[in-house]
Design a protein around this nucleic acid. Structure first.
Lengths: 227, 227
DNA sequence: TTGAATTGATAGTCTTACTATCATTTATAG
DNA sequence: CTATAAATGATAGTAAGACTATCAATTCAA
């Protein structure tokens, strides 16, 4: 079974909704590929325009600047993650099972049933790992935040927090645990790839070590917390 | 007691050692202030040159580009952290106590005895929190890594790992735990300040909640890990 | 006090990050 | 099927950023 996934993004993220036109979708899909290939710093609207045979001016009609495009892409990712979380934990009652599912989603070890025509999810995952932090590590976080730009991230974090609270209502830091797990899931992947001595996953491929690390951390914290 | 601190940085980080001249030190100290004030993206060598009444060309004689200056600053920070770790755990035998000290250093709740003439440590801390990741989240990580640019970070992480292993030799992820704690210590500070709903520290000021969160995580993981 | 190293002054190149204007194509409503 | 609006393309231009090169002035060190 595959489900067609259509994610409606908050208008604060774009000037004109890229989902409503061929050109808009091409900006996003090719943008993802190019940011993935050359990194966000080297990526420019001029290069993107050349690649898809349009002009810089046309791209600016969709996104104010490249940072907004990055944020759009990243927000799409968080929304998709939350969809997955809801879907895969829907009929699960055991909160332990729910947490395990969340961690599998975070480490990208679930192959999902949601399709999207023009978004390549593995590239997207790489972008989150390598560029994700850059969406909020700016001098304009506060304004961006007021424009609801980070809502998808926060929603995901909050949904995780609810599950943690269900598992152990006494644990006082469910949101911090959520954001830590999200960030750690991505940092450790980056480190494993580029700076392996910051991890203990050696030369193993895949996310087995990481998942085990995160699971151990999560359950030990939730099971044994004392004031 | 105050100890004069002099940190020798690896040559890969600069073109000409900024520590060896008045101008060099001014580039670093004013660089720190300006990056702190305006953020790394808006910071330029031209603005820095104007501020300290020198020229762009002169600054380029010390650092290849602004990213190298950032990395220099950040590496100085990691080296200083490691110094502190060594100093404050030196005659401690109880590994539990050592870990508590490490966490206090990481959360910046130790007021240190090391002086440095021209480096403002609170600004530095803010820079690490807001820009730290940007030193390695680039397309040239691999080359930078080969040039030993990240050695200070790795050394700190490894030293933490040794302490964790001392505390519980069976725990299989001491390095991942180290890098996670380092990153988390900074992310959570950033979130608390700018995106508080990703944390549970509410409107509290200070790092009490954060320290408690990290301590709970660390000890529960180390005490209870099972295969 | 002479020579070497450091800094300053000036200028120039190429790229990025936009903004503006007008022409052309495409979609759509009557 | 046409009128009209919306979307895109073409072109051009500006200001700033990220450098590199050259030569003169200054300072430092033997």
């Amino acid at each position: 079974m595959e489900l067609q996934l259509h994610i409606k993004m908050t208008p604060g993220l774009y000037v004109k909704d890229p989902d409503q036109s061929e050109l808009g979708r091409k900006i996003v899909s090719t943008g993802i590929r190019m940011i993935h290939e050359m990194g966000f710093e080297a990526f420019t609207f001029r290069k993107l325009a050349n690649e898809i045979n349009t002009t810089e001016a046309s791209i600016y009609r969709y996104f104010e600047n490249k940072h907004r495009l990055l944020t759009y892409i990243i927000s799409w990712f968080w929304t998709w993650m939350e969809y997955q979380l809801v879907f895969y934990t829907n009929n699960v009652t055991d909160p332990k099972k729910k947490i395990e599912t969340v961690l599998e989603i975070l480490t990208f070890s679930v192959d999902d049933k949601f399709m999207s025509d023009y978004i390549d999810k593995d590239m997207l995952h790489h972008i989150i790992v390598a560029e994700g932090n850059k969406s909020y590590l700016t001098k304009h976080v506060e304004e961006d935040n007021e424009a609801k730009i980070f809502k998808p991230y926060k929603d995901l974090c909050h949904r995780m927090a609810l599950i943690f609270q269900e598992y152990n209502p006494k644990y006082p830091y469910p949101h911090s645990l959520g954001s830590t797990l999200i960030e750690t899931a991505h940092h450790q992947v980056y480190f494993q790839e580029h700076l392996p001595s910051l991890t203990d996953f050696g030369n193993e491929k895949g996310t087995k070590g990481l998942t085990h690390f995160l699971r151990s951390m999560t359950f030990n914290v939730l099971n044994n917390h004392k004031k």
